[in-house]
């Protein structure tokens, strides 16, 4: 264990921990943009600079390993001045369109601009402009809002193992790009969207579906494969506005394309909305009572005619435990047969 002092408070961290991690452990707030707890440190935004006794220049706390006996100060007039300069520089190359931005209200950059009271900007100048021209149906990339924090690049490489994007070009023209500027073509897991601290990366289906303050967040479990990732359905009205996942669950907030972007079947117009009974080869709408009574009557009739083992029940790996339990109970105890199975083998 390493003992260090942050803002006069002593704390202990394991070897290899960064100064930022030590500060977070103490509950000391240091502003960050590029840092993400699930990704390797980047050190690009420079907001998390701190003063370390004996070191002449400020150090980025996200990349500086905690060292024994280190004395760290996280906030001084000089540090705050430097942070303000850095923030002002970022904002000098960022569109002022929070009023229409999808991310407003849930944007780290916006929050920082607010808390540092950024109104005037001493550094107004050229702004990068890019045409949006991705053909993919999942991820919206608005590079003008990109602050080059590199989180998307890191998550794509470190978590997803895909490296579909990386930094390209130099200087002020540096940007996050696909190889040779092709359209984004990747696994579309949207991990990048989930870690983007600004409105640069959003879901294509999210537009105008609801800002974060308007949605109701419902934690549930993904309905696709057996991995069972934690999902948060962000619901506005009776519609899913978008799907996210909490970082503090076992799947660490990571999802796949189906889990993150494959939710629109829920509100599909193809959904069955009323019971149907086939009459003369055609489905006719029926009331619940009628349909249920008809179904049970027929099943009991066939059971009476051929015996219980002429009845079969196919349950579902898509349904809940409770539904499966009740289904097999009905087949076994209600119809008197063990002919119950589901598609575990398929």
């Amino acid at each position: 264990m390493i003992t260090l002092t942050i803002d006069g408070k002593k704390t202990q961290v394991v070897g290899g921990a960064t100064v930022l991690e030590a500060a977070r452990k103490l509950g000391v707030y240091i502003p960050t943009l590029c840092q993400h707890p699930k990704l390797t440190p980047f050190g690009g935004c420079r907001l998390c600079i701190v003063e370390v006794k004996g070191v002449p220049r400020p150090l980025a706390s996200c990349t500086t390993p905690a060292a024994e006996g280190m004395e760290v100060t996280t906030s001084t007039p000089q540090l705050e001045g430097l942070r303000k300069t850095v923030l002002e520089l970022i904002l000098s190359d960022h569109p002022d369109d929070c009023m229409t931005c999808e991310k407003a209200g849930n944007c780290t950059l916006q929050e920082l601009a607010y808390s540092y009271g950024m109104r005037e900007n001493r550094f107004r100048g050229e702004r990068r402009t890019y045409a949006k021209r991705d053909a993919n149906p999942f991820i919206e990339r608005d590079l003008e809002k990109c602050i080059l924090c590199g989180r998307c690049v890191k998550v794509c490489k470190e978590v997803q193992g895909v490296s579909a994007i990386d930094f390209a070009y130099r200087g002020f023209q540096a940007k996050i790009s696909t190889p040779f500027e092709h359209d984004l073509n990747c696994e579309f897991c949207g991990q990048c969207v989930s870690v983007c601290p600004t409105g640069a990366l959003t879901g294509k289906g999210w537009a105008k579906k609801g800002r974060q303050v308007e949605v109701n967040e419902v934690d549930t479990v993904c309905g696709y494969c057996g991995v069972g990732c934690n999902l948060t359905l962000n619901v506005k009205g009776n519609e899913i506005a978008r799907v996210t996942s909490r970082e503090d669950t076992w799947n660490e907030g990571w999802l796949c394309v189906k889990g993150r972007f494959g939710y629109k079947f829920v509100n599909s117009p193809d959904r069955l909305t009323t019971p149907l009974i086939k009459k003369d080869g055609k489905f006719v709408e029926a009331g619940w009572d009628e349909a249920l009574q008809y179904a049970t009557d027929r099943l009991m009739e066939i059971k009476g005619k051929y015996g219980p083992d002429a009845i079969g029940g196919l349950s579902s790996a898509r349904c809940t435990n409770e539904e499966n339990y009740l289904f097999q109970k009905i087949i076994r105890a209600g119809f008197g047969t063990n002919n119950v199975d589901h598609c575990a083998r398929l």
Binding site: R46, D93, F123, F167, R170, F172
Partner: peptide
């Protein structure tokens, strides 16, 4: 230096651009 900045950190990428301007 501005055109050779790698673009990783804000002060170098944007700051040198503003100095240049």
């Amino acid at each position: 230096t501005q055109s050779e900045s790698c673009g990783k950190c804000v002060p170098c990428r944007v700051g040198t651009k503003r100095l240049l301007e």
